[in-house]
């Protein structure tokens, strides 16, 4: 069993509690306009050419994005960091791309973590068949669940897919009372209107398993990545949020009884 991983981050601090190792799996069914990790979208290995300046001589380097990993190789990587997980109540986070594309690969890894009492988190956009989600649903301790739009038309426009599966899977996790942190990528002018926030609040208020909302404000940092990978950058020029504006949205969510963090 193999999967394509495009990055493994040690000392990840923002993908769940404690010191975490985040494993980024390649391939995503969504094509969000603002995606920070465009290299994660293609399920196959990408490559590009990069020139290093060595003593004023440009040296051509072929950089590959993505590498095949076996289940055992991943487990070896996880084992490297157990001392940090123990000390900090940390664990492993599976991210992407969309990790639910790779449930067959994930299942034995998650089982390993469950057996070793290593905390697991799944950073997902929720776009997967019900069967796929069910196949690992009890192996994950924490869901970091992206919700971009409740409005389906907007969802279709800016991510390329309908949000029906996403919201249904969210309901499924709630029925099973799974621990969820909602991740809200906040894009100026795109999903941050009063109406967007109101719809989100109304949706989330139906459930009682949302432990926290993480606001992820948009940063204008990924353009060069698109260029390098030859992918069209569709997002129009938008100005980054001021911290005041984010704070207003944060307070609005807090008023509704949610615990909210802002990930700078």
């Amino acid at each position: 069993m193999e999967g394509i991983v495009f990055d493994i981050k040690h000392f990840a601090l923002h993908d769940g509690s404690g010191i975490r190792q985040t494993i980024f799996l390649k391939g995503c069914p969504l094509k969000c306009w603002w995606c920070h990790n465009p290299e994660s979208q293609n399920p196959k290995i990408d490559s590009y050419i990069k020139y290093n300046n060595i003593d004023d001589v440009p040296i051509k380097n072929k950089i590959t994005v993505g590498k095949h990993y076996s289940v055992n190789e991943i487990i070896k990587e996880i084992e490297k960091d157990t001392v940090f997980f123990d000390e900090s109540n940390g664990g492993v986070t599976f991210s992407g791309g969309e990790p639910l594309l790779h449930t067959n690969f994930l299942k034995p890894i998650l089982s390993y973590c469950n057996n070793k009492n290593i905390h697991t988190a799944l950073d997902t956009c929720g776009y997967a068949t019900k069967e796929k989600l069910l196949s690992i649903i009890d192996n994950v301790d924490l869901y970091l669940y992206d919700i971009k739009f409740i409005d389906n038309e907007k969802h279709l426009k800016y991510t390329g897919v309908s949000n029906e599966l996403i919201l249904n899977n969210f309901r499924l996790l709630s029925e099973k009372n799974k621990n969820i942190i909602v991740r809200l990528p906040l894009i100026p002018e795109i999903n941050s209107t009063d109406k967007d926030i109101e719809l989100l609040i109304n949706f989330l208020k139906q459930f009682n398993n949302v432990s926290q909302i993480d606001i992820l404000p948009y940063h204008n940092i990924s353009k060069s990545k698109y260029k390098r990978l030859n992918i069209e950058y569709k997002l129009p020029e938008v100005e980054e949020f001021s911290s005041d504006k984010i704070e207003i949205i944060k307070q609005r969510l807090i008023k509704e009884g949610f615990k909210v963090t802002i990930d700078i």
């Binding site: 000392f11 601090l13 404690g18 010191i19 001392v83 940090f84 000390e87 900090s88 940390g90 700078i264």
Partner: peptide, 23 residues
């Protein structure tokens, strides 16, 4: 400096130090 701005960041530096010392 950014990494030490938040309480969580600070806690994790403490965990990092303690892990190193455990080893």
């Amino acid at each position: 400096p950014a990494i030490l701005k938040t309480e969580a960041g600070l806690n994790n530096i403490v965990h990092l130090i303690r892990s190193y010392f455990k080893m």
